[in-house]
């Protein structure tokens, strides 16, 4: 972990939230986004989740043995180092706060709009609240979590954020 934080201008700073009938797209504050690599032999994930909750972060399942931990506020370097020390040796943290951006898509038509971009079945019966997966939206790889019945959180690489935003704005045009 670096001693110094790079200060970046927000990737979607200039974008006002897209608000249409039954769908809205809004950028989340670029707070904290940690990539967790967990050794499953080192204890259960419950303790891990408790430690992260204490730091004000929420877990998003990523893949086998890996999670994202997200939060709206940026953790101070000392807090991050302390968290990293707490989680070892069960998990390693890679700070991705500078590298990934969160976008919230919500509203009754959110699943309809997202379905235009991905092959993943977003029906609530098979993609319940809390479920997450990584998939392609058009040509852009993004991580999608259902955070509410009609709300999704997309995590996308910073460099692709604007492009994905433009696509979401276009895909939701029919509901304007």
């Amino acid at each position: 972990m670096s001693e110094f934080r790079v200060t970046l201008s927000p990737a979607l700073g200039g974008r006002a939230a897209v608000s249409r009938k039954g769908i809205s797209v809004e950028a989340q504050p670029e707070g904290t986004l940690l990539h967790l690599l967990v050794d499953p032999t080192m204890g259960d994930a419950v303790r891990l989740a408790a430690d992260l909750m204490a730091a004000g972060l929420e877990l998003r399942p990523l893949t086998t043995g890996q999670w994202f931990a997200v939060g709206d506020t940026a953790l101070a370097h000392a807090d991050l180092a302390a968290l990293s020390a707490t989680l070892k040796p069960q998990a390693d943290i890679v700070d991705q706060s500078h590298g990934r951006v969160r976008i919230i898509v919500k509203g009754k038509m959110a699943a309809r709009v997202l379905s235009k971009g991905t092959a993943v079945d977003l029906d609530i019966a098979v993609f319940p609240v809390g479920h997450a997966t990584t998939t392609l939206f058009g040509h852009i790889s993004a991580h999608v979590t259902r955070i509410g019945e009609d709300a999704f959180e997309l995590i996308v690489l910073r460099g692709f954020a604007e492009s994905l935003w433009d696509e979401l704005a276009q895909m939701s045009l029919e509901f304007s």
């Binding site: 990523l62 893949t63 086998t64 997966t133 990584t134 998939t135």
Partner: peptide, 16 residues
């Protein structure tokens, strides 16, 4: 021609 076994990487998914 027929059965073939290959390594595939789920690049834009679970990355396994």
């Amino acid at each position: 021609r027929g059965a073939y076994q290959e390594y595939w990487h789920h690049t834009s998914g679970c990355r396994r």
